[in-house]
């Protein structure tokens, strides 16, 4: 009867559907993976590239580490062409790439992202040092004699009388995020180096020192708010006493709601981040497989679009998306290297 015939027909159709969609043939669309921090910028370039006549590249948001893994899988039309990274490629990742045949990698330093600590507007302005940030958030801090003890500070004013008399409460990204890595390196490590006893520890036992700045307290003072920076922004609006950690572009977009915390007396704004005065800034990268240039249509043109003045220059469209442009000379250097398609030297990575 009809039902059994129908069922048979559907089943057959389904099976043949799977069978006939064979492996991907040659590809004319660039594929990019990687950091969610660089995603808003790479997508903007991708869109412009598409409007200029190319096929709009596909940009996936996989996180810096995940992107590196996919990027380093190998060379071929079914492999990604480029990856976004909110930190420099690690030596181990470079070696993984090399092992899988990805030997020539073009490194584009595309701009700077300020890592900002912010709070809701309306609270009194706060100035912090990185050492104070470390003292507020590290799991273990040295006591008067330099011995490591579990973090005793409950209020900001316990650390220094100049800080507000409220409970320490900081919302930040989870460990899977590249932003979190940068926070550890830019704030916690540098902050720890500002304490004499830890400086001595660094000389004596680098591993132990690393363990100190890499561990964040787990007693509720630091709240992991998820990968989504907008969530942190929303939570700050509701909680005037809390501080949040996120990229500068979110601060710039929400100037009506948030105020940045000055670090070492320097306010987080465009000029200070671009000039390098503000200490909590990191470089953003895009890595491209040189071996794919010429195989995948338009990859070299895409690189040229990314490093062009109208994209990553001071008045480029990426700055209106929240990217802080590189200083002029450095941008020139990056541009020259990118246009020459010169690969990065693995020995320079660490």
């Amino acid at each position: 009867m009809s039902i059994s015939k129908q069922v048979n027909a559907i089943a057959f159709a389904a099976v043949s559907l799977v069978a006939f969609s064979g492996a991907a043939a040659a590809r004319d669309q660039i594929r990019i993976v990687g950091s969610s921090t660089v995603y808003p910028f790479t997508t903007a370039v991708a869109e412009q590239f598409g409007k200029a006549g190319g096929k709009t590249p596909i940009v996936e948001s996989t996180g810096t580490g995940g992107g590196m893994k996919i990027f380093c899988e190998g060379v071929g039309v079914d492999k990604a062409d480029a990856t976004n990274a909110s930190r420099r490629m690690k030596k181990s990742e470079y070696e993984l790439c090399a092992k899988n045949g990805v030997t020539e990698i073009i490194e584009l330093k595309v701009g700077i992202d300020g890592l900002t600590i912010a709070q809701a507007k309306g609270a009194k302005p706060v100035v912090m040092t990185r050492t104070q940030v470390f003292q507020a958030l590290a799991e273990q801090v040295p006591d008067k004699d330099g011995k490591l003890i579990p973090n005793p500070y409950q209020k900001w004013s316990d650390i220094n009388a100049s800080l507000p008399d409220v409970k320490i409460e900081v919302l930040g990204p989870p460990p899977t995020s590249g932003t979190r890595d940068s926070f550890h390196e830019l704030f916690m490590e540098k902050g720890a180096e500002g304490i004499e006893s830890l400086k001595a520890l660094k000389k004596a036992d680098a591993k132990a020192f690393e363990a100190v700045w890499k561990s964040i307290r787990k007693d509720g003072a630091f709240v992991e708010a998820g990968e989504n920076d907008n969530v942190i922004v929303q939570k700050l609006e509701g909680n005037k006493n809390a501080f949040g950690i996120f990229g500068y572009s979110f601060l710039e977009e929400n100037t009506s709601k948030l105020a940045g915390v000055s670090v070492e007396g320097i306010e987080p704004n465009y000029e200070n981040i671009s000039s390098g005065k503000y200490k909590g800034a990191r470089d953003l990268y895009v890595y491209v497989k040189k071996q794919h240039v010429g195989v995948i249509d338009g990859l070299d043109k895409f690189v040229a679009e990314y490093v062009s003045d109208k994209a990553m220059g001071e008045d480029g469209y990426l700055t209106s998306k929240g990217l802080v442009a590189l200083p002029k000379e450095e941008a020139e250097k990056v541009r020259a290297a990118a246009l020459a398609l010169s690969p990065v030297d693995g020995a320079l990575l660490n």
Binding site: T42, T43, E47, T56, I58, E60, S61
Partner: peptide
């Protein structure tokens, strides 16, 4: 499987991104 991505074009078939 890579569907969390920036894709401008409206897909035309089952294997389009």
């Amino acid at each position: 499987i890579g569907m969390l991505a920036f894709i401008v074009d409206v897909p035309q078939g089952l294997t389009d991104p």
